Simulated scan of single mutants.
Amino acid sequence: MRPLFTTYRVLAFVVGVALAFCALVAAPMKYLFAEGSSIQELGDSLSILWALHGTLYMVYFLVALMLAYRARWSPQFTLLLLIAGLVPLLMFFVEHRAAERMKAEHPELA
């Protein structure tokens, strides 16, 4: 289960950073600055990262689902894992909770 857990943690970090960057940097640059300004155009160019986040989120979703199934986590916690990739900055809190829970339930991973 260690490779699956490691994959989950890496994907959680990458998906969390991508979502936070898109939501907190790229989107404001695109929509809050004057149309045609260099910052607005940069924000528009950076919007391609939403597609990257979406693609990585699909992989994260499957890995998180497999991990939750193998760890026998409750449906509520599994749902929290899956939703975390859709709410900016929530991923970091949930990944930390999942890591604590995994280490408590599977000490061999610590």
Score class of each variant (00 low, 15 high):
Ile39Cys: 07
Gln40Phe: 03
Leu42Asn: 01
Arg97Glu: 10
Ala34Phe: 13
Ala26Met: 06
Thr6Lys: 12
Ala84Asp: 07
Ala110Arg: 12
Ser37Phe: 04
Leu90Gly: 05
Tyr69Arg: 15
Thr55His: 06
Ala27Gln: 08
Glu108Met: 11
Ala99Tyr: 14
Met58Gln: 11
Ala20Lys: 09
Met91Lys: 06
Pro75Ile: 07
Gly36Met: 10
Gln76Asn: 14
Lys30Arg: 14
Glu108Ile: 14
Leu86Arg: 13
Tyr31Cys: 05
Phe21Arg: 06
Lys30Ala: 08
Phe33Asp: 00
Arg72Thr: 01
Gly54Glu: 02
Thr7Gly: 14
Gln40Gly: 00
Phe13Leu: 14
Leu19Asp: 03
Ser45Asp: 15
Arg101His: 06
Leu24Glu: 14
Ala64Gly: 03
Leu49Gln: 01
Leu52Phe: 05
Gly85Val: 00
Leu46Asp: 00
Tyr60Asp: 03
Phe21Tyr: 07
Thr7Ala: 14
Val10Tyr: 15
Gly36Asn: 08
Glu95Cys: 04
Ser47Ala: 13
Leu32Tyr: 07
Arg97Ile: 11
Leu49Asn: 00
Leu52Ala: 03
Phe92Met: 09
Gly36Cys: 10
Arg97Ala: 10
Leu19Glu: 04
Phe77Val: 10
Phe13Arg: 13
Phe77Arg: 08
Ser47Tyr: 08
Glu35Arg: 13
Pro28Glu: 06
Val10Lys: 14
Ile48Thr: 15
Val10Pro: 05
Tyr8Glu: 04
Met1Gly: 00
Pro28Trp: 09
Ala27Arg: 08
Met66Ala: 08
Met29Trp: 05
Phe13Pro: 02
Gly85Ile: 02
Leu67Phe: 04
Leu56Ser: 00
Pro88Lys: 03
Pro3Gln: 13
Leu67Ser: 00
Leu42Gly: 01
Ala27Ile: 09
Leu24Ser: 13
Tyr69Gly: 12
Leu109Asp: 02
Tyr8Gly: 02
Lys30Asp: 06
Ala18Lys: 12
Tyr31His: 11
Leu90Arg: 09
Ala71Lys: 09
Thr55Leu: 09
Leu52Asp: 01
Ala20Gln: 06
Glu108Thr: 11
Ala34Cys: 12
